[in-house]
């Protein structure tokens, strides 16, 4: 069973159709890179998957459970959406760390708030919080920030902030971790450390969807590549096929422009 199945997803803003009939599925442990020129709808697709935008049409299911169905109002309530969001994690281009909290607290906060809803929270508070704390420490160690636990976001470099953001997204154990151009707000010398962390996650077979302009990285790390153009999925295949043997005219032109340094 696919971990993610998207069928007939459509989204428009006013009269602009941004996503037009998007269909694809993803298996557990796969790493999908989404490429395409600016304005093709990549960010909008990720935002729909994380329910930051409500698609106009279509179905999103995770492990066979329908999370969103435009024709079923029950899947559209706020509580339902909030619950379904937890299947996905999202790492933003601009990190969006919470400035008033330390790196540790950024990673722990959502989990603490969720834990409050547990029936055994009152009786087990101490143990639960210690566990959350230990997990956060382990996650920050995993992204190489053991020495920055008590630093505030403004005391961290862009690359460090993005790594905290990755740890924060991982804290809720999402089925699918999404990245929207995770390195494009970073100085070139800082992209490496973030890509390295994503690469490590790939080695652990974390299911990921990465919107990226780093073609070389997409080629190395992903198991699938999806090329979008003008709101359509134009090509969806292994990186070897998409990069080495593109079948669609539009893909060929995009990759050409890219290798000429225009994209």
């Amino acid at each position: 069973m696919s971990v993610l199945e998207v069928s007939n997803l459509q989204k428009s803003f006013g009269s602009t159709d941004v996503l037009k009939n998007i269909n694809f599925s993803l298996e557990r442990g796969e790493i999908l890179s989404i490429i395409g020129s600016s304005g093709s709808g990549k960010t909008t697709l990720l935002r729909c998957l994380n329910f930051l935008e409500t698609p106009d049409e279509g179905i999103i299911s995770c492990n066979g459970d329908i999370l969103f169905d435009s024709s079923n109002p029950k899947t559209l309530t706020e509580t339902e959406i909030r619950k379904n969001r937890l299947h996905f994690g999202l790492v933003f281009q601009s990190f969006n760390l919470f400035p008033q909290y330390t790196a540790m607290k950024n990673v722990m906060l959502a989990k603490e708030l969720l834990a409050k809803g547990r029936p055994d929270y009152k009786s087990n508070k101490k143990a639960i919080l210690t566990e959350i704390e230990n997990e956060a420490k382990a996650l920050l160690a995993q992204v190489g920030l053991s020495d920055k636990l008590s630093n505030y976001p403004h005391e961290l470099s862009g690359g460090q902030q993005q790594r905290v953001a990755i740890a924060r997204a991982l804290a809720l154990n999402p089925e699918i971790l999404c990245f929207d151009e995770p390195t494009s707000a970073l100085d070139p010398e800082l992209t490496g450390e973030v890509l390295k962390v994503i690469k490590q996650l790939a080695d652990r077979h974390t299911t990921m969807i990465i919107v990226t302009h780093e073609m070389q990285f997409a080629r190395e790390v992903s198991t699938k590549v999806l090329f979008m153009d003008d709101g359509y999925v134009v090509e969806y295949d292994t990186p070897e096929e998409v990069f080495g043997n593109p079948k669609e005219e539009r893909t060929i032109r995009f990759l050409e422009r890219y290798s000429n340094g225009l994209e």
Binding site: N50, L52, R82, G89, L90, S94, N96, A110, A169
Partner: peptide, 13 residues
């Protein structure tokens, strides 16, 4: 910034 709200939303808050 809107990103602050969205970061909270995607974390299920």
């Amino acid at each position: 910034p809107r990103g602050q709200y969205e970061a909270g939303q995607v974390l299920g808050m």
